[in-house]
């Protein structure tokens, strides 16, 4: 049978399917519900845990959220540029171990007698390098972000052990003294760094054309390409940004713990949940900087409240897992679709 015979006069696709009002309502409910949950948790702790509402405690919450918060802000960049499809979208599983590696670099550098400047530069370089490896594997080798960053995560974990031999490398420096202190009195500097990083990223992501384009790249890659955007560069930049955030977070972590500490990988779940949970605070159900900041504080409040109420902090892990499931389920069902 020759292939020249064709038999198609196919119908075009009618995309004028009436959109569902129910989905709109559900989206609104999810957002309102999330905010309500936030307020309810806040109120519950305020009522049940003595001292929760004190200015000192709240400032502490911000300070204690700093490390995870900055990690999650970096992850947010990747999620924005990669789109929040859970499987194929952007995700950076290497952030936590990248933090561990960077902390080891920073602490080891200081231990070797380097000044803060040199140690910071080396730390930033380490973070960016990991980001660059991720960018190359995702953008140019076309590996799924989930797998590519999983591999980078293990590389980071290995390198960290090489540097630290699985011990705590104590560190101190003038910068660390400032970071771990309070300025003005009662306000942890770590918290201020978190807010500063968030403000900076919020400006870039939400107030500049570059930020808008990053959203376009993640929201509909073909549309971004059709708009003439260098899609690969944007995705690559998001991984570099995430790597740099891990480096910043590592310095905060060293300040908090007075040295590099093993087990940084445990922060991964918290960073993922924080970045994903932030989605429910946005009308468009996309990751945003304020959303991520809010969810970082939400999780910080959970941990803090549990501590004040003498509930085992192990529960927090379970709660985070449940939150991931809820958020992913809600957003994948409710996100608006084009065509």
């Amino acid at each position: 049978m020759p292939d020249t015979v064709q038999s198609h006069i196919a119908l075009p696709v009618d995309v004028a399917v009436p959109r569902s009002r129910a989905a709109d309502t559900a989206r609104t409910l999810v957002r309102a519900g999330s905010l309500l949950a936030f307020v309810a948790v806040f109120a519950a702790f305020a009522a049940a845990a003595p001292g929760f509402l004190s200015a000192g405690n709240l400032a502490n919450v911000v300070g204690q959220s700093a490390v995870i918060g900055v990690l999650a802000l970096g992850m947010t960049l990747v999620v924005v540029a990669g789109g929040n499809d859970v499987v194929r979208g952007g995700i950076d599983l290497s952030v936590a171990n990248n933090l561990g590696l960077c902390a080891a670099v920073y602490a080891t550098g200081l231990g070797a007698g380097w000044g803060d400047g040199a140690a910071l530069a080396a730390t930033a370089l380490a973070g960016l390098l990991v980001g660059a490896v991720n960018a190359v594997s995702v953008v140019w080798l076309g590996i799924l972000p989930l797998l590519a960053t999983l591999a980078a995560m293990n590389v980071c974990a290995g390198l960290e052990l090489v540097l630290t031999h699985n011990t705590v490398v104590a560190a101190s420096s003038p910068l660390l003294d400032v970071l771990s202190g309070e300025y003005p009195a009662g306000v942890p500097v770590l918290g201020e760094v978190l807010l500063g990083v968030a403000a900076l990223l919020a400006v870039v992501l939400h107030l500049t054309p570059a930020g808008l384009r990053l959203y376009a790249v993640g929201g509909h890659r073909e549309a971004a390409r059709a708009a003439g955007l260098p899609v690969a560069s944007y995705v690559a930049a998001s991984y570099l940004g995430s790597g740099l955030c891990a480096a910043v977070a590592s310095v905060l972590s060293v300040a908090l713990l007075s040295g590099s500490t093993t087990g940084s990988g445990d922060m991964l779940l918290a960073a993922v949940v924080t970045a994903l949970l932030g989605v429910v605070f946005s009308r468009r159900l996309v990751a945003t900087i304020p959303g991520t900041l809010l969810s970082a504080l939400f999780i910080g409040i959970l941990i803090n409240g549990f501590q004040l109420l003498n509930i085992s902090s192990y529960w927090v892990n379970g709660v985070q897992g449940v939150l991931i499931l809820l958020v992913v389920a809600a957003t994948s069902m409710l996100r608006p679709n084009a065509g």
């Binding site: 376009a216 073909e222 059709a226 065509g339």
Partner: peptide, 12 residues
């Protein structure tokens, strides 16, 4: 181009 599959970002 006005594409058949409308190349628009749904969340924009």
């Amino acid at each position: 181009f006005i594409h058949q599959d409308r190349l628009l970002v749904p969340t924009f």
